[in-house]
Computed example of a mutant assay.
Amino acid sequence: MEASVLFISLLSLFLLADCTELTFQETMLLRALGLNRRPQPASPRPVPHSLWAIFEKGINADNPCRMESFQVPGNIVRSYSDQGPFISNEESHDSLCVRKHLFFDLSVIEEKEEVTFGQLEIKFKHNTYHGHGFQLRIYRPLHMTLKAMRNHHTNRKLLFAHSFRLLHKSLHFNLTKVTQDWTNLENNMGLILEISADGEDTDIQKFSSCHQMPSFIHTSLLTVSLDPTNCKASRTKRNAEPSPPTPSNICSKRRLYIDFKDVGWQNWVIAPRGYMANYCHGECPYPLTEMLKGTNHAVLQTLVHSIEPETTPLPCCAPTKLSPISMLYYDNNDNVVLRHYEDMVVDECGCK
């Protein structure tokens, strides 16, 4: 049984199971979603606008393994908060406003995933210093120790140098190659961010510009990755025409709405709150009609069943066409994740 069909089946059972069975079934469900346990976000952070925009735009059912917003292959988008500390400026020049160690925990990226895009966002929450000029530099440390972080001349590589003014705009930097290297956790020593007041400003302006800047900085990392195990080489378009009516005991698609609140997932699943998963149910009687979309094997099996019903069972009613959905949720590290899952909605059923 395919992973997504298994997910639908497990979730259906989960809704009906008693308390003694929930732990095992929920574990199976979470594994189908790529999680090792139920996320329990203590203080959920806001969902980045970029992830909301992708979710609201909807998934391309013909190619759910491509993130059109970034023009790269992928079916998983994650947003990570910065966990690095500010670094004292004892040995730095007077014009230096901020020195900060940026660190993002990428341990949630699985070995089977291929990182296709990485982007650093630096956001200033207010424009109190509107018009003041700054110089920004981002370094990649080649050796990371507390002493090295504090040393202005530490062994490091300059990645970006950028002049800017605080105008209520975020600054974005492409970190795809660095992020790909960071998937080997031993290589992830983070970055060093330095922001200095522009040399053209007076000493008074520099002081006022620098004084509260650390409290206004918010940094985050966004990655796009591709899980090839949840992709198909090609897809056929969904048929928008409604299926013809069938007798109640004949194999057909049945409605099943899954509400995440019913399984206690409303605290970590951000969107959707639920979805129409559907399922297949019914008999595959002899002779199989075209309406039942039977495989050649199923046709022969029903023929043999009509001759030897005690030794050969009838074919099974199973999905013949499925479509994907997107889920927006918090993972076990409190990262915000947008993930496309193929074959989550049963569109058509047939005999196999």
Rank of each mutant, 00 (worst) to 15 (best):
C65K: 04
E26Y: 03
S220V: 07
R273F: 12
H168A: 14
P46D: 09
M189C: 00
P41W: 06
D105N: 11
N230V: 11
T145A: 04
K237N: 03
E2Q: 11
F207M: 07
W182Q: 00
N278P: 01
R37Y: 01
D181L: 10
L16H: 02
Y129Q: 15
D259Y: 04
R37F: 00
A42W: 01
T27F: 14
P85W: 00
D347A: 06
A53P: 04
E21A: 11
Q25A: 09
T302N: 07
L300Y: 07
L102Y: 05
N332D: 14
S4E: 14
E56S: 09
M291C: 10
W52T: 12
I325P: 08
I192D: 02
P228M: 12
S163K: 12
K232C: 01
K237H: 02
C351P: 01
D343T: 06
D105Y: 07
R31P: 12
G199D: 14
N230R: 15
R38P: 00
Y139V: 10
V77F: 09
D334A: 02
Y329R: 07
S225A: 08
S69K: 07
C284S: 01
D331S: 05
P319K: 14
V269A: 05
R99M: 04
H130T: 10
T27W: 11
G294D: 01
Y257R: 11
A233I: 02
L15D: 06
C19V: 07
V346I: 09
S170H: 13
S306K: 05
L288E: 04
R31G: 15
H172F: 15
A42E: 05
A3D: 14
P272A: 09
M1N: 08
L136S: 05
G34W: 01
P313C: 02
K112R: 13
N174C: 14
T312L: 05
E194W: 05
S215A: 06
H340K: 09
P315F: 03
I325K: 08
K169S: 08
K157N: 11
V269L: 13
E111A: 10
S196H: 10
Q205I: 11
F104W: 05
W268I: 11
R255P: 12
R140N: 04
G350F: 10
C231Q: 10
P324F: 03
Q180A: 02
I87T: 03
F70V: 12
N127T: 15
D334V: 02
F103W: 00
D18W: 08
Q205M: 09
I76C: 06
Q301L: 09
I250V: 15
M327R: 15
R238T: 03
C284Y: 00
C231L: 05
P73R: 12
T320F: 14
K125Q: 06
R339Y: 15
N267F: 11
A240V: 00
T23R: 12
R339I: 14
T23Y: 05
H211P: 01
V5G: 09
T311A: 13
S170P: 14
N151W: 05
T302R: 02
F103K: 00
H143I: 10
E310L: 03
H305D: 02
F173H: 13
S170F: 10
K57E: 13
L158C: 13
Q135R: 14
Q205F: 04
